[in-house]
Write a protein that binds this DNA or RNA. Structure first.
Lengths: 349, 349
DNA sequence: GAGATCATTGCACACGTGTTCATACTAAAA
DNA sequence: TTTTAGTATGAACACGTGTGCAATGATCTC
């Protein structure tokens, strides 16, 4: 591993001069500078970012922790972050925590030890426990997809309540009266808020709320499938379903078909995310588009604002956009769906 | 930012003793050690990995470059890598290159400057151009999903030829005679090999090869859609389609439906990847499962073998597994599909 | 009690880079 | 010629950490 001292020896100058020459400092004679840079190139020299970081007190690196990178939602957020980081010449340190608060803390601590210049956390489960930790380490942290009402926290979220409201309103306007909610793990902030939006939409039109129509998965399709099966086994099943996210919606549609129901004629489904594949599904999924990529960009942008000494907005809240596709239609009979009590041995289509 | 010198001052010892105490060295008096560690904790001290890296000459960091993290295929590979890295106490530096050889090189150079202990590159587009660069920088590199026949390269791939063979054989065995191939960008190694497998399967049973039935997308659903549309507009369209990957398969199925065809009765489709959502599609996608997570694990495992001085296998080739689901059935008439020349204004189901 | 062994600690240097300050030399001005 | 201003360079220190070596003092052995 060759250092500036090596090429200093080769060029018969001090390492100071080499350092200056490589950074194109006007302090060094143009001829010597060229000679040094030539030698450096010949020897295949590359600066050591670790040596440089030690003196510059910055690593040009930001840390990103997500629940799972295999989750396309997180992947798109990271994609947005990476895009902005690249334009600033920053690198990305990635860690996953699998919704484990402990692993989340460990990841953040690891980032801190590595002296990242900033940290982005998506779907944090730790929340206010960060406070004492943040007091110690003066590293700017931006939260994505979780909001903390404390003064010194920055966050980028979508308006989850509004998203739930839009999705449910859409189903209400189609004429549905028995609308189910397929949530994520209980206690998750985004779930609570989307659920609240769902409730609000029902109250707007005086549709009686039926707790039977609320089930919880874990955000993945498999859990959504079994949760939906419970819902469809009800004596008076829903005619429409609002799902926490698109992955859950896929699982729900799968369960419905196995139950002998056709989508959307027997069951309307609306998701939330608008994943790349959602528009290619059959039927194409009606959903609330979440600007994932843009959220990543904004979060990273906020961080770089902070790093350059500016005072960006603390709480950025984005609006989801309703994308109506083919998975939602009016219910079969406008006189509610009491008559359509499907048997499990029903039409196998 | 507090350093060992600060707590050395506070504990009235030399920074050497602090360094030893924090690493639980047996050389330091247990009482002093405890006192030092207490002070360190009170002050919220955390080692600087950059200082440590400078002297240890290792960063406990590996670099990963993928084409796009938003691509679920890459995301799952990264997920596998991260899992193994974590067990070794390593962190992950992530970069994307968007299939641009130049950006790929820049990413690798950035990693090198940051003195990562090893590099993983998925779907490399640069190939042998690495050689001179590798000669300079003695950082172990593992390639995923691209194979380089040079001596000093390590790689983990799936047997693409075999995958193409299995997929096409499956369609042949169902009785299809006009089988299309929807490939990725021309020149991509994986595409060439899968295409070769496709050809081999056709030759096995003496099905005449028709170059009309081969089209190329870019691995994404949108391009796949338009490419498939061209295929279906043929006077004598295919009755089955082997797609480069699952994303393409989704685009292909979408195009077929817009063309008035039913999947699988009018067109059988087989993908390659087995994404999380592939089994939840309608119809559930027949595909060749690629052990993405395992490939990431193996690649990372190979790297850590190298880092610990062992000599792991150079070329790891994995077998894809045919997963038969609902998107493939025998063709409508065994007397080929000449009669089924669908009009674009056909049944709109 | 003298020498030997051991436990504990500090000094000094190293890692690779950037930067301040002083120095040596050159050229211009007086 | 002397002073002044300017140019080019090196010495020295700093960043935070780890470690070989020496030094100190204590305990043990005979």
């Amino acid at each position: 591993m060759i250092s500036i001292k090596d090429i200093a020896r080769a060029a018969d100058v001090s390492h100071s001069t080499v350092s200056r020459a490589l950074r194109n400092s006007p302090l060094v004679n143009p001829e010597t500078s060229l000679r040094i840079r030539t030698i450096a190139q010949e020897k295949g020299y590359r600066v050591s970012a670790v040596g440089r970081s030690l003196v510059n007190r910055r690593t040009d690196t930001i840390g990103v922790v997500v629940t799972s990178i295999a989750d396309p939602f997180n992947a798109e957020i990271v994609s947005g972050i990476e895009e902005i980081a690249l334009t600033h010449g920053y690198s990305l340190l990635l860690a996953t925590c699998h919704s484990d608060p402990n692993r989340e803390m460990l990841a953040v601590q690891s980032f801190y030890e590595r002296r990242v210049d900033g940290i982005l956390v998506s779907s944090s489960r730790v929340g206010s426990l960060y406070r004492p930790m943040l007091a110690d380490m003066k590293v700017p942290i931006i939260f994505i997809n979780s909001h903390h009402p404390d003064d010194d926290m920055f966050s980028v979220t979508i308006d989850n309540h509004n998203a739930g409201l839009q999705a449910t309103r859409h189903l209400v306007q189609l004429g549905h009266k028995r609308i189910g909610y397929l949530g994520n793990q209980f206690g998750l902030q985004a779930d609570t808020q989307r659920y609240a939006g769902y409730r609000s939409a029902l109250e707007e039109v005086d549709i009686g709320f039926d707790p039977e129509l609320v089930v919880h998965g874990n955000g993945g399709p498999e859990n959504a499938k079994s949760a939906t099966a419970r819902l469809l086994a009800l004596a008076n099943p829903p005619t429409a379903l609002f799902c926490f996210n698109d992955m859950s919606a896929f699982g729900a549609m799968c369960a419905a078909r196995e139950h002998g129901l056709a989508i959307p004629s027997d069951l309307s489904v609306v998701g939330l995310d608008d994943l790349l594949l959602s528009s290619y599904a059959e039927p194409a999924l009606t959903t609330i588009r979440q600007p994932k990529h843009e959220m990543g960009r904004l979060a990273a942008g906020t961080l770089f604002q902070l790093l350059s000494g500016n005072s960006p907005e603390r709480f950025i809240s984005m609006r989801g956009e309703l994308i109506v596709r083919k998975s939602t239609v009016p219910p079969r009979s406008s006189a509610d769906a009491i008559s359509t009590n499907h048997q499990k041995s029903g039409a196998g289509a």
